[in-house]
């Protein structure tokens, strides 16, 4: 799963700590999501989408089938 969380966060000029605080998760979780090491639950994906005012599909994209 690919995502635009890091790009959106930088675009809005907020730090990982601030985003983590707003989403009530740890900073490490934000870092892992941004690096693609961890795929968030549907609930957290909705919270992220709501935070950025976008839909889940606009932030998260499925990796192309190989």
């Amino acid at each position: 799963m690919k995502n635009k969380v890091a790009a959106l966060r930088r675009e809005r000029g907020i730090t990982q700590e601030e985003l983590a605080d707003a989403l009530e998760v740890s900073r490490q979780t934000i870092s892992s999501i941004e690096n693609g090491r961890y795929n968030p639950s549907l609930e957290l994906a909705f919270r992220i989408a709501r935070f950025f005012g976008l839909t889940i599909e606009e932030i998260f994209q499925e990796d192309e089938y190989r």
């Binding site: 009530e24 998760v25 740890s26 490490q28 968030p40 609930e43």
Partner: peptide
């Protein structure tokens, strides 16, 4: 509280 409930840490 955040660290106790953080879904990645719970996982």
């Amino acid at each position: 509280q955040i660290e106790e409930q953080d879904e990645r840490l719970v996982h």
